[in-house]
């Protein structure tokens, strides 16, 4: 899923300062599952803002709603009336949802309430970890399922740097060293010889470094 954190209230306050009628929109998919921008969190932000409005005499009118997915037109379009009534819309979705709502209703400004951080998973209660960086050329077959791009702080392709410390990454003692995990998994599977393969310098064209990406499937087009 896509993981994100809600922005600090001070930043949100500042963004909303010029407006009066504010529509908060949550998203019921990833960002809701990571407990950042679903129905519940929209409710919490709405009451926070109402409180601030009262204390600081802001005169804000806050309305709230949560849709299934902000990254799909069919879920966004029914919001037409609510969009029209608002001065500004604040989205609690990931960066994709925030942008797509603004694309569907280009006459409105859509502000972000979330800092989108990574593609990850909920490894245990209250903890999410990054797993993939969407690099466009997956090498998980060569690393037995542990991503060296997203999980090694230096994105190394050919084994650990010299900074591995007791299985932890040199960058942070709370972070597992990806190559330590890869080595152990290879060992467990009796495939240590995989380490001898020199993975050559890759092309980054498939990642963001080749410019923004787009996917076309003609067979799916009308």
């Amino acid at each position: 899923m896509i993981v994100g954190d809600r922005k600090p209230i001070e930043e949100i306050k500042e963004m909303l300062a010029p407006y009066k009628k504010i529509l908060l929109v949550g998203c019921g998919t990833c960002i809701s599952v990571c407990m950042t921008g679903g129905e519940k969190e929209v409710g919490i932000l709405a009451s926070e803002l109402r409180m601030i409005s009262e204390l600081e005499k802001k005169d804000w009118e806050i309305s709230e709603t949560t849709i299934q997915r902000q990254c799909e037109r069919e879920y966004i379009e029914p919001l037409k009336e609510q969009f029209e009534k608002a001065d500004v819309v604040m989205s609690m979705a990931c960066g994709v949802g925030i942008q797509y709502m603004a694309e569907v209703f280009p006459e409105k400004i859509v502000l972000p309430a979330v800092n989108t951080t990574f593609y990850g998973t909920n490894v245990k209660e209250g903890e999410w970890q990054e797993r993939c960086a969407g690099c466009g050329d997956c090498v998980l077959d060569k690393t037995l399922g542990i991503c060296p791009v997203a999980r090694c702080s230096k994105g190394l392709y050919n084994g650990p740097c010299g900074g591995t410390d007791n299985g932890k990454c040199e960058v942070n003692k709370d972070l597992d060293c990806a190559w330590y995990l890869i080595y152990n998994r290879m060992k467990e599977h009796g495939k240590l010889d995989m380490l001898d393969e020199i993975i050559p310098a890759r092309s980054w064209k498939t990642s963001l470094h080749g410019g923004p990406r787009k996917r076309v499937r003609e067979d799916a087009q009308k």
């Binding site: 050919n158 084994g159 650990p160 740097c161 010299g162 900074g163 591995t164 410390d165 007791n166 299985g167 190559w179 330590y180 080595y183 152990n184 060992k187 240590l192 380490l195 001898d196 020199i198």
Partner: peptide, 20 residues
């Protein structure tokens, strides 16, 4: 080469890789 970084077992292999 860092013989003192874990996993120790990997360090000679990594050296072999650098030689290759």
């Amino acid at each position: 080469a860092n013989p003192f970084a874990e996993p120790f077992g990997f360090r000679p292999l990594r050296l072999r890789k650098k030689v290759a």
